[in-house]
């Protein structure tokens, strides 16, 4: 009961002091200067038409405030999130926005108090419709990113003032290492044929089928699974158990920190991407974790996640417990 009372008080406080910030845009500044000038002119000359104009300008300011407030009220946001966020390059991020009643116009969204750059917008948000806002965000660095709220800004109706409101919403975004080129060779495979083309049975088409995957560049056209390719519309190749599929276990050495760690993470991510793309199995060894080797894009995602958490183990414990 006590709790409910507290909740109610908090709600009342929030209602009384809505967390808004108001910024005057560039054109708005000029507008205010002109309004001031017109006001001076009206007072000095007593010209009634200037008074009329001044009244119009001032009430436009008031109406603009009221409309933008109506526009930004009653908005609820949830994060749909992203598929994959790599550091240093834009990734698609989505918020689902809706409101119970009334329209909203010209909303722009961004993450509040986080180093994520960029934002997305929606021109018109009718009531009771969930609209997915897309944005290209950029994260500066790898690692888990705590998000505390979504910043909603509108310059509606006239673009004179930008009204901003932060909707508190906890969340976590895992930023994968930057995508670069791998400069080092992955080293020897743990399992699988040794050497590059020493195996005479390399392309003989025997061996158990382990799966299909898209034909990569420079691969033998004889490996194409024509039936499946025809049905899906893209060139798929057959992968066999005994062929060039090898297993690597990549390692991020202990004791790295700062830039060296970042560099190594990027390197490992790039290597893993390349090897998985070629159809090999890749595992990962870090100071406190081992990732079993596996293939496919799910494995790549797992590796990227593990790499993203490197160096942020403290936060990770909590997250693990939560999951």
């Amino acid at each position: 009961m006590n709790l409910r009372l507290k909740q109610r008080r908090a709600r009342l406080r929030a209602w009384l002091r809505p967390p808004r910030t108001l910024k005057v845009t560039r054109i708005g500044r000029t507008y205010l200067v002109v309004t001031f000038g017109v006001g001076l002119g009206a007072l000095n000359t007593g010209n009634n038409l200037l008074y009329l104009l001044l009244g119009l300008l001032l009430s436009m300011v008031v109406v603009s405030g009221v409309l933008s407030e109506r526009c930004i009220r009653d908005i609820s946001v949830r994060r749909v999130g992203t598929d994959a966020a790599f550091a240093g390059e834009p990734f698609a991020f989505r918020w689902a926005v809706s409101r119970k009643q009334g329209h909203a116009f010209a909303l722009t969204f961004s993450e509040a108090d986080s180093p994520l750059l960029g934002g997305g917008g929606v021109g018109y948000l009718p009531a009771n419709v969930e609209h997915v806002v897309r944005a290209n965000l950029t994260a500066p660095r790898r690692g888990p990113l705590r998000m505390t709220g979504v910043r909603v800004t509108t310059t509606w109706p006239l673009g004179l003032f930008a009204k901003t409101r932060v909707l508190p919403l906890e969340g976590l975004l895992l930023v994968y290492p930057k995508r670069t080129y791998a400069c080092q060779e992955p080293g020897d495979a743990e399992r699988g044929p040794v050497g590059d083309s020493g195996n005479p049975r390399r392309n003989d088409g025997s061996g158990d089928v382990t799966g299909l995957r898209e034909l990569a560049e420079g691969e033998d056209a004889r490996r194409i699974h024509w039936l499946k390719s025809a049905s899906t519309g893209k060139l798929l190749r057959v992968e066999r158990e005994r062929e060039e599929r090898r297993t690597w276990v990549l390692t991020v050495e202990a004791g790295l920190a700062g830039d060296a760690l970042e560099r190594r993470c990027e390197e490992v991510a790039a290597l893993a991407h390349r090897l998985l793309d070629e159809g090999h199995e890749v595992g990962l060894n870090t100071t406190d974790r081992r990732l079993r080797s596996g293939a496919g894009s799910a494995q790549e995602k797992r590796i990227l996640r593990a790499l993203a958490w490197l160096g942020f183990e403290g936060a990770r414990e909590e997250e693990e417990e939560a999951a």
């Binding site: 116009f105 010209a106 722009t108 917008g121 929606v122 021109g123 018109y124 509108t154 310059t155 509606w156």
Partner: peptide, 8 residues
């Protein structure tokens, strides 16, 4: 203009 700027 304001709405147009916000529309993707």
């Amino acid at each position: 203009g304001v709405v147009e700027a916000a529309v993707p």
